[in-house]
């Protein structure tokens, strides 16, 4: 891979210094599993200073505050999928991270890199969306917090400036009562790019009335999305079979509405409807009896 310069940094401060000092475009290297694939084509990084942030210890690992999980941007998908805090407080994210690529890819690929790469097919996007995850982004040492869904402009594009560094993914801790389901559709179980993911997160009161509901589809829209109108279909209700059919139809109808009618629509729309129905029946099994 042709590059202009390679700098390895060990602290976030050193990253900011290197980014400021760089003459020309920079490419941030986290796990490298996307950069090295992109770098095979057309010398795309030949003018870039590659700043390798993988050795920055402060960007690795998961810790907690009272209400949040704080996931370092360089934490690998494999580490997240086995992390006890993530498994306890955001199990849908552990599951989504475990669905990424192969073990070899998960051992290297990072959650921050995956977000910055902005592939609409990224396995974790739908899970992070329904979790209402936020990103801590640093520029020249100044930190800001943005909703995860807000940084994406179109496939493979974000609104991040080249010296913006995602440092932390903030994930609200979920109570044990939260129910979730994550489904990935790929050509094979492992080493497959998502054709679709469906992520659902919901909570009910003691009477089976839904108090919170988020359901979205990944690898289908140009960027990760949440749908307040879909959420409103179940919140405040004790769901019936008809409600489930209605939600699944409304969610699958978003596909042509947002992504337009593409060659894959004839396949994706019924698959989305069927998976959504199946997920909701599973999640409401005790209510539907």
């Amino acid at each position: 891979m042709k590059i202009r310069n390679y700098i390895q940094v060990k602290t976030v401060e050193a990253f900011h210094e290197a980014a400021k000092a760089a003459d020309g475009p920079i490419t941030i290297l986290a796990g490298g599993t996307d950069v090295l694939v992109n770098g095979r084509e057309d010398d795309v990084y030949k003018d870039c200073t590659v700043i390798d942030i993988f050795p920055v210890e402060a960007l690795h690992g998961v810790c907690e505050t009272e209400n949040m999980l704080l996931i370092g941007a360089c934490t690998t998908h494999e580490a997240i999928s086995h992390d006890p805090l993530v498994k306890q407080y955001a199990p849908i994210l552990a599951e989504a991270c475990g669905a990424v690529g192969s073990l070899q890819t998960r051992n290297r690929a990072t959650i921050g890199g995956n977000l910055a790469n902005a592939s609409p097919a990224a396995d974790t996007m739908s899970a992070l969306a329904v979790l209402h995850a936020e990103l801590v982004i640093e520029r020249d040492g100044e930190a800001r917090v943005e909703p995860m869904t807000a940084i994406f402009t179109k496939p493979y594009k974000t609104n991040l400036a080249q010296n913006d560094l995602i440092t932390t993914i903030r994930v609200p801790k979920q109570s044990p009562n939260v129910r979730y389901d994550y489904v990935k559709v790929g050509r094979r179980k492992v080493l497959s790019i998502s054709r679709m993911t469906v992520a659902t997160l919901l909570e009910m009161d003691n009477n089976g009335v839904v108090t919170r509901f988020d359901m979205t589809v990944g690898a289908t829209f140009p960027r990760p999305m949440l749908f307040p109108d879909i959420s409103a279909m179940l919140v405040g209700k004790r769901p019936s079979e008809q409600d489930i059919i209605g939600v699944a139809k409304a969610l699958s109808d978003k596909i042509p509405e947002i992504a337009g009618i593409r060659k894959s629509t004839i396949y994706k729309q019924p698959v989305c409807r069927n998976i959504s129905e199946r997920s909701l029946r599973k999640l409401f099994a005790d209510i539907l009896k």
């Binding site: 390895q8 490298g32 950069v35 090295l36 590659v50 390798d52 993988f54 051992n107």
Partner: peptide, 15 residues
């Protein structure tokens, strides 16, 4: 690499 199986085609020499 550092105790983990990785594909060496996706690791930069600098790493």
């Amino acid at each position: 690499l550092n105790g983990k199986a990785v594909t060496s085609c996706l690791v930069l020499a600098g790493q």
